[in-house]
Design a protein around this nucleic acid. Structure first.
Lengths: 347, 347
DNA sequence: TTGTACGCGTTATCAT
DNA sequence: ATGATAACGCGTACAA
């Protein structure tokens, strides 16, 4: 580490203004300032303006700690992030930003909690009164945070659905319907066998909730449509995709039906390299974001996962929960299929 | 959105225990409890244990708001995230997690701030007394948060170096030395011309600080070594990398020297597809993480950006700043080159 | 419609 | 080495 020194200014700052200062400037009592800010009692237009001007003049903002102490709410929502993982990082930034932006619209802030700290992080922030509610991402089928969430006094919203979701507020993209839409799309063009490029073995080992949710529905649908289904859990590297394609293309007699749950980029590049064009030489459908789909050489027919929708709806639900009690339930964000010509026309 | 209702348990929770409760259980005064927790005055081993037992029994944790109000510190550090961007998302998760984990080691938490909210987010959290310090990522050469950071009463650490860093605490990976190491590596094998796959036009437009820092040093070094340098700002898609390689390989008389600032995966795949082997057919060096380098078909000689190191050192510096005043300065995290055989032996 | 006064749960300054 | 007690800044019941 290299060091390169600078001069540091030693300015003295005045203390932040309090509601008492605002009251003095506005010529009213401190409680009036408080009531102007909360709107919890009628204030005459004249005094209201006096107070607002004073607030503006002093650039006053309420002390969060004092507010939390007196008001029993923090205006902070905890967000438990997943473990870092290059595979899913892309969507996560959009996801978390959307959480934060929606929080700000309600004058809330977001406290970052790590999955690495484990379930006890949730108990900790509640005991310390650091959050009014929490959002937990990347839920496992047997998630250890589920039993804790049931006991917490504050609302907790799971992004994902554990096996036992009794008493939990869960919201997620509708992977079940997505699976059916994608299988149907291939079934409708008389596809004989569907080869699925599923989530990586690592994801499966982590018991991510959406893996069985998607897979079981996909397999059930394939059965009911009389189609064979091969499920491959390849790593999402170029090598993994190549292995997958080698397997798929081994029997050259049948036109292949491909279903990939992400990495459209890798798949698209690998197909292009082999001179295979989706829609002409094979049928391909994907589960991925619209953004990912549209930058492919041959944009695939896909069901979009829409991470921003899920986080926006999660936050909207969260604020409803903070207002009043709402029974625990499961909310699923609609899966929509967009046709882009990577599947031949039905005939 | 589908709805699926569940029964909700209506358990009544007791209020969180306070230090007063702990005092009662331990049979001491409330202030003694406080002093046991802070260690700010000597306590006899006997009473200390009494208090600790009571804390344990009640699973007491101090009310963060009350503590902030009375103690004038929040035990929270603000983290201003970059705008979401798939290109840099991978490293960011590791980066932010490392921030959070180091914060927890000091009993600090992390408040997430969005770049979208702009510079005023920093002023806001200071006025509301929500943070004791802040970290700001993804700095532009003319970053609007710089002038504000100079005025703030709380310590602010920039991850990155704006053009005018006077009065700012900046820390970053040493892109300058990295550029020199990479250029030297190619120059040492009599490379005639270096073709650089630089950051995308979008990054350049955002005036990300590391782009000119790296580029100017690289070009200066190339000049002083008597080597030509071509700088290409291609998008980091497969198509972009292909365009780049087409340009590089256009004149077939000279052995190409390649320097890529990231996306080793795309570059490796594209080279493999063309049957080109780094170290045999051309010389390749990269700026990327060790993890990225090592999963390539031909792992490239590279300078590692080590995101975890930067965030760990940033947090360590931040806690020093919270302890006492330290003059503003620039700290650079050492760039180390790892040879992996993508460059032919010097002769 | 507005003001007064108390309490929220800590920290820190007095005492002892 | 420990115990009382006064802030800290805001929300809100109670008065007016």
């Amino acid at each position: 580490m290299r060091i390169d020194e600078d001069a540091a200014p030693t300015a003295r700052r005045r203390p932040a203004p309090t509601s008492k200062d605002v009251a003095r400037v506005a010529g009213v009592s401190q409680s009036t300032v408080s009531y102007v800010m909360s709107g919890k009692r009628p204030i005459s237009a004249a005094t209201r303006q006096l107070v607002l001007d004073a607030i503006d003049q002093l650039t006053y903002e309420p002390h969060a700690g004092a507010r939390a102490l007196a008001g029993h709410r923090t205006n902070v929502v905890g967000l438990m992030m997943p473990l870092p993982d290059p595979e899913s990082a892309g969507g996560l930034m959009a996801f978390t930003e959307e959480i934060a932006l929606n929080a700000r619209k309600h004058d809330y802030d977001v406290l970052m909690l790590t999955a690495a700290e484990g379930p006890k992080a949730l108990a900790r922030v509640q005991r310390r009164a650091m959050c009014d509610a929490a959002i937990v991402m990347e839920i496992a089928t047997d998630d250890p945070r589920a039993p804790l969430a049931r006991e917490l006094a504050m609302p907790v919203i799971f992004i994902g659905v554990p096996d036992d979701r009794d008493g939990l507020h869960c919201i997620d993209f509708d992977f079940e319907t997505a699976a059916e839409l994608l299988v149907d799309e291939l079934a409708d063009v008389e596809c004989q066998e569907i080869s699925v490029l599923g989530w990586s073995a690592e994801r499966v080992a982590q018991k991510m909730n959406y893996v069985p949710r998607f897979r079981e529905r996909a397999e059930a649908r394939a059965r009911s449509r009389g189609i064979a289904m091969r499920w491959i859990s390849a790593p999402h590297t170029r090598a993994g995709v190549d292995d997958y394609l080698d397997g798929v293309l081994a029997d050259g007699d049948r036109r292949p039906g491909l279903l990939t749950v992400h990495s459209p980029h890798e798949v698209g590049a690998a197909l292009q390299q082999r001179g295979l064009v989706p829609g002409r030489d094979l049928d391909l459908v994907s589960l991925c974001t619209d953004a990912e789909a549209e930058v492919q050489p041959v944009p695939p027919t896909a069901v979009s996962t829409q991470p921003r929708d899920v986080s926006r709806l999660a936050m909207s639900w969260l604020f409803d929960l903070l207002d009043g009690d709402i029974p625990a339930e499961l909310r699923l964000v609609e899966a929509r299929l967009t046709r882009r010509g990577s599947v031949r026309h039905a005939g």
